[in-house]
C-alpha cells in the first residue's frame, strides 16, 4: 500500500521543552491510522506540526512524496491535508454556511455547491440550520460542523484531533460512525484520541505515544488485544 503521509524521526520543541522526541510513522492511502496516548504525550503537537502550524526542530514529513515540513500552513491545506483542531475551534459568530465556505478557503474560485451538498448529506442538521450562528450549537453539532468544514477543502488526508472530547457517549458514537462512513468512501484519516477503545476499534493501524516517543505500533485489533495497552489505556487490571 502506498504511504500518503510519511513521518520520519520527527522532533518538535517548544523552546527548550522537547514535546516530540523523534517519532516515525506512516499513513497509507485509504487507511485510518490512530495515535493514542495520555495528555502531554505529544499527539496534538504532532498533528499541528504536520499541518504546518508548528515548525519541526528535526526530522522530515512527506506528503505524497513531497517534503512539507517547514511549508506554511496555507500551502499544506492547498496540497490536501485538512485539520480538525482540538476543541473544534469553529468560528462562533459566523453562520454554518460561512464556516463551511471558510473551510474551502484554499480552493479559490471553484464551485462549492456539490461539496456543500455532500457535507449536508453527511450531517443533515447542518443544512437545517445553515444560516444560524455556529456559536449557538451544542458540542456535538459543533464537532460535526468542524468535520464538515475540514471536508470542504476536499482533503486527501483528514486529520482529527480528539473529536470525542467533551461529547456524550451517544454523540461520540455518532461521530465515530461518521468516520467509518468517511473511510468507506475512501478518505484517508489520521485520528488522534485519548479514548483508546473507540479509536482502536476503527483503526487499521495504531501507534501508542508516551512522552514524545512511540512505544508500541501494531494493527488496531492487535493493540486492542494487547495486555499492556488494556492496562494503561483502557483501565483494566
Amino acid at each position: 500500500m502506498n504511504a500518503i503521509l510519511e513521518v520520519v524521526d520527527l522532533q518538535v520543541a517548544y523552546g527548550k521543552i522537547r514535546a516530540v522526541k523523534g517519532i516515525s510513522f506512516s499513513v497509507g492511502e485509504g487507511q485510518l491510522v490512530s495515535l493514542i496516548g495520555t495528555n502531554g504525550a505529544g499527539k496534538t503537537t504532532t498533528l499541528r506540526t504536520v499541518s504546518g502550524l508548528l515548525s519541526p526542530t528535526g526530522g522530515t514529513i512527506s506528503f505524497q512524496g513531497r517534503r512539507i515540513d517547514n511549508m506554511p500552513a496555507h500551502h499544506i491545506v492547498e496540497l490536501g491535508i485538512a485539520h480538525v483542531p482540538e476543541g473544534r475551534h469553529i468560528f462562533p459568530r459566523m453562520s454554518v454556511e460561512e464556516n463551511l465556505l471558510l473551510g474551502a478557503y484554499a480552493r479559490k474560485g471553484q464551485h462549492l455547491g456539490a461539496d456543500l451538498a455532500r457535507v449536508f448529506e453527511l450531517f443533515p442538521v447542518l443544512q437545517e440550520r445553515r444560516k444560524q450562528a455556529a456559536g449557538t450549537f451544542s458540542g456535538g453539532e459543533q464537532q460535526m460542523l468542524a468535520i464538515g468544514r475540514a471536508l470542504m477543502s476536499g482533503p486527501r488526508l483528514l486529520m482529527l484531533d480528539e473529536p470525542s472530547m467533551g461529547l456524550s457517549p451517544i454523540i461520540m458514537a455518532r461521530i465515530m460512525d461518521t468516520l467509518t462512513e468517511l473511510r468507506e468512501r475512501g478518505t484517508t484519516i489520521l485520528l488522534v484520541e485519548q479514548n483508546a477503545q473507540a479509536a482502536l476499534e476503527l483503526a487499521d493501524y495504531g501507534h501508542v505515544l508516551e512522552i514524545g516517543r512511540i512505544t508500541l505500533s501494531d494493527t488496531g485489533a492487535n493493540l486492542l488485544g494487547n495486555a499492556e495497552v488494556r492496562k494503561a489505556y483502557l483501565g483494566e487490571d
Binding site: L53, H74, V77, P85, L102, Y105
Partner: peptide, 9 residues
Amino acid sequence: RAAEAMGVN
C-alpha cells in the same frame, strides 16, 4: 489559529 488551520494565509 483556526483560520490558519483552514488554509487562510
